[in-house]
């Protein structure tokens, strides 16, 4: 049986000849369309990222299961200890834990960029007549989709667990948009690290050693006023704390416009600095 199968396969293979005439025709056609616009190029890369999700759906486990796990664990493990009850704690925790889990998944962008370089695909992209940032922007667009999906899943789970946003649908939507804007901007750090790091493992360990302190030293899990005095100013001024204040305010219907503006300023800063570093590293590679 196995023998027959092998034989059929090699028969098929030998039929797969190079068709010189056809090849000649294709070469002679010499069609040269106009180079795509930056937006079209970025969209093509976004399409590529979606195809990757289609072919390797396992990668969605991270963004689906990780946030749900975080939400369940922190609510039921610490709720009683920190807030004296899981219901109140969930009300406080949900916006923050949403920020934390989604910001943590941004590091996959850097790993993707690095894998493209290792595999040589990015060499091909670099010889194309396209906007140089298009591959990165395409990645980030597809990632924004993943973050939105993760956000929706967490919010849904939270609702099932009893979370009720006082900010209403508008507040929740604006909060998620603020989070997505921040993640898009923040991811440029990882595209840069993805370009300069030696391997995807390096990217991962660098990202982890930045993300863990950055997300835990914040107001995600606890109120900073319970922290030692010297730590409070640090925690209160990290971009993550500002983002959480902004998102929490929008969800709760008590908008903290200062935090929203600060978050947008941080975002602009990340794009300016790390977008520049990314493109420079990309051109140099």
């Amino acid at each position: 049986m196995a023998f027959t199968e092998t034989k059929t396969k090699s028969d098929q293979e030998s039929l797969a000849q190079i068709e010189k005439e056809r090849l000649r025709g294709l070469l002679a056609a010499g069609e040269r369309p106009q180079a795509p616009s930056p937006l079209a190029a970025a969209r093509a890369f976004g399409w590529r990222a979606m195809l990757k999700i289609k072919h390797v759906p396992e990668q969605l486990f991270d963004i689906v299961l990780f946030p749900i796990m975080m939400l369940l664990m922190f609510t039921y493990l610490f709720g009683g200890a920190i807030a004296g009850g899981t219901g109140d704690y969930l009300q406080f925790l949900l916006p923050g834990i949403m920020v934390m889990s989604i910001v943590m998944t941004t590091m996959y962008t850097g790993m993707g960029v690095n894998i493209d370089i290792q595999k040589g695909v990015s060499d091909r992209f670099k010889t194309l007549p396209i906007w140089r940032a298009a591959p990165m922007v395409g990645y980030l667009l597809a990632d924004a989709f993943r973050y939105a999906a993760a956000g929706a899943i967490m919010f849904g789970t939270g609702m099932v667990m009893g979370y009720r946003p006082s900010g209403g649908p508008d507040g929740v939507l604006l909060g998620v948009v603020l989070l997505l804007v921040f993640c898009f901007a923040f991811s440029w750090i990882w595209t840069w690290i993805g370009l300069i790091a030696r391997s995807e493992k390096t990217v991962m360990s660098i990202s982890m050693s930045i993300l863990f302190p950055l997300t835990f030293l914040s107001n995600v899990m606890v109120d900073p006023s319970t922290m030692p005095g010297w730590l409070q100013p640090v925690v209160n001024n990290t971009p993550i704390t500002q983002l959480v204040d902004g998102v929490r305010g929008l969800f709760d219907g008590a908008v903290d416009s200062g935090a929203v503006v600060t978050t947008l300023l941080w975002s602009a800063g990340f794009i300016a600095v790390f977008g520049f570093l990314t493109i420079r590293a990309y051109n140099r590679k």
Binding site: P33, Q34, P36, W47
Partner: peptide, 8 residues
């Protein structure tokens, strides 16, 4: 993908 990126 590559044909799209060439502008087709």
């Amino acid at each position: 993908l590559l044909s799209r990126l060439y502008g087709f």
